[in-house]
Design a protein around this nucleic acid. Sequence first.
DNA 1: TGTACACCTTGTAGTGGCTACAAGGTCAAC
DNA 2: GTTGACCTTGTAGCCACTACAAGGTGTACA
Lengths: 146, 146
Amino acid sequence: MANGKADTTLSIGELATRSGVSAEAIRYYEREHVVPAAARGGPGRYRRYDEYDVERLQFIRRARELGFSLDEVRELLALNDGSPSRPCTDVNRIARAHLAQVDEKLARLGALRAELDRVISECAGVVPVADCRILSALSGGPAHER
Amino acid sequence: MANGKADTTLSIGELATRSGVSAEAIRYYEREHVVPAAARGGPGRYRRYDEYDVERLQFIRRARELGFSLDEVRELLALNDGSPSRPCTDVNRIARAHLAQVDEKLARLGALRAELDRVISECAGVVPVADCRILSALSGGPAHER
DNA sequence: TGTACACCTTGTAGTGGCTACAAGGTCAAC
DNA sequence: GTTGACCTTGTAGCCACTACAAGGTGTACA
Ligand SMILES: [Zn+2]
Ligand SMILES: [Zn+2]
Ligand SMILES: [Zn+2]
Ligand SMILES: [Zn+2]
């Protein structure tokens, strides 16, 4: 019970500064039930937070930086908050599924990049547009038909 | 003047099929002034298209497949429609700038992928969540501080 | 001629994850 | 008591569409 650090109280702006998540984003997360609705201080109307909330927002920020969707973040938070003795199978599964999605996106973007590079490599930018290989590629031109 | 192929007339659905762009997207492009407003056939109210429109929509589709934004597509179309004797400097510039953007995105996604992979590699999915390295990494845990 | 039916029309809302206001309320210091 | 920093809710915007809803049009066939 003697914790010694969770009883500070922070405004949403202070939480934003300390967590690296903007106040607007924090309110957005509350609306979207990524974080529970914050307590409001005393008789006043402002949201009040503590050090525990800083940690949760940092968790969310790091997960977002790794590209996890808010749906995935919700699941990860639930697992993190759930029974600590359960095996981390689900955490692992979510992370690996996300990695697979990232790899797919990388593969698609890499293919796009290669094709774009190929198209650009045929244009030095000095011929009339009528003869430009970039435009003819977009027009279905005869550059690499089949 | 003897063209022999631009006088067919197509409905938006036929244009969609032939161009590979959905009818909804074609209407969206019209609203966004990517393509000019289509002629409406005779006394009726339906949009009417010809083979020239098929080519333009295919141009747009290919540009979109290479990741060009609609703003960029508008510019490319304008250059393609403009004076054919002008040098293709601007086409080249737009395409290279876009390639640079794609490379940036690839670099960011690659870094994210590497970090995600590193984090996942420390979790076999078999320990209690309290000890999971994925969750501790997200919590700012002691895995790779610094 | 009736009517079925595919296709078209416009308009609006939703996607994801926020950001950027506007118009007003609260709180602390001085 | 007044300034002014911060907070509040609500709404609109970003991008490039997609997905309706509610109704109009065009045509083929009985
Ligand atoms: Zn994911
Ligand atoms: Zn060129
Ligand atoms: Zn671009
Ligand atoms: Zn684990």
